[in-house]
Amino acid sequence: MKVLVYSAKDFEIPFLERANNGRHEVTYLKEALNLDTAFKSVGYKAISIFSGDDASSIVLETLKGLEVKFISLRSTGYNNVQLKTAQKYKLKVANVPDYSPYAIAEHAVTLLLALNRKIVNANNQVHAYNFLQSNLMGFDLKGKTVGIIGTGNIGTVMCKIIHGFGCDILAYDVEQNPNLIDQYAIKYTDLETLCSHSDIISLHVPLTNLTYDLINKKTLALMKPNTVLINTARGAIVHTDALIEALENNQIAAYGTDVYEREKGVFFKDNSQSGITDERLKKLISLSNVLLTPHQAFMTTEAIQNIAQTTFENIDSWASGEKCANELLPEESVTEWD
């Protein structure tokens, strides 16, 4: 099968090549999928896209007209794909549901520890030969209450890690995991209770109509002034304007994130020469109590290898006429938290 890979990153191409192992005729394109680049899929039966690509209705309609049949996502999240339109045009879409929950959860903990122990500030200081400690005070994680929103694959790993620090764990999800209750003594509660009682809150839900702006002016107002908020899920789960206001007013203590609600056109590219025009993003990263990384949580050898492998397993299934185990349906984007 002829496959066009959009948003192909130099670091992932060797993994994709090994996973394909010559079975399919693959072309790699650095450009993201959008209305302007959709025409490049002429002659390809399948395409592969990343989480930042545009698979909106008008783009999918264009792909249908170009006789594309299959779309294999190289991500777990699929909020960038209009699944109802894909179903309408009989486009098969599949994701990578479980590439490495450890990569994401470990990055969330990294953000938390770096913020708490002022690692970035300390590193900058010593490089300037400043070895004072007066502004580097942190706190012990042991005994703190951690609120974990979403206890799917990634949230489950986060519970395990946080439990190892000796924390008390509150959780919020549409479905409880009894194993987490038994093994780690986590307590499921409502969102308002979690926000008002947690010292640390970590987000591990997909972006759906149920989670959009889940962290907003109301929920931020419930949080304690010492709360550290961590987001390795999706940027639009947090209302950015309300977050900035809460940070500036010392309503919460800090924000560590690997994602931003308007990543498109900014993330996954070097803007060091051209700069950026998003004033909200500029404001966010200018705050001393914010640590933002460029959507790199998935960047481990194991995760990239698993993504590549599953991407071509999905394509293999379609090529052989078999049912693809990871195919997505429209209702899944509303009813399930991953």
Rank of each mutant, 00 (worst) to 15 (best):
V68W: 10
N326D: 03
G150R: 06
A221C: 13
K224R: 14
T211H: 02
L328H: 05
L214I: 11
Q87A: 15
Y99M: 07
K224C: 09
D53K: 05
P225I: 09
G235F: 13
I169W: 05
V120M: 07
A253H: 02
N95D: 04
I169G: 05
I47P: 02
E106A: 03
H295I: 05
L291I: 14
G265K: 12
I162N: 01
G52T: 14
L35M: 02
I181W: 00
V146C: 08
T27G: 00
Y188A: 10
E25K: 11
D173K: 08
V109Q: 03
E61M: 04
S7I: 04
Y255D: 08
K30G: 09
L180V: 12
D278E: 06
L29E: 13
L132H: 12
L203Y: 01
L35T: 04
N95T: 04
Q183H: 13
T189A: 09
D168H: 15
R280K: 15
D53W: 05
A46V: 12
I201V: 15
K217L: 09
D338C: 12
L33F: 09
E175H: 11
G147Y: 07
R117H: 15
I244Y: 01
L284F: 09
E67F: 10
L170F: 14
F312V: 04
S288Q: 15
F131K: 10
N116E: 08
V26G: 06
L66F: 11
V205N: 12
S72Q: 02
D140L: 12
D140M: 10
A308F: 07
I230E: 04
S100Y: 11
L16P: 00
I237W: 03
A122D: 02
D54H: 05
Q176T: 14
P97V: 11
K9S: 02
S198M: 08
L328M: 07
N231Q: 10
R117G: 08
E175K: 14
F15I: 00
E192P: 00
Y99D: 06
A46P: 01
R18S: 13
T335P: 00
G77W: 04
P330R: 07
M137F: 12
T240C: 06
H239V: 00
T189D: 09
N121M: 10
G43C: 11
E261V: 05
V81A: 05
Y99P: 06
E17S: 07
A254L: 10
I119C: 07
A8P: 08
K30F: 04
G235C: 14
L111P: 04
G138H: 11
A55Y: 11
K264N: 13
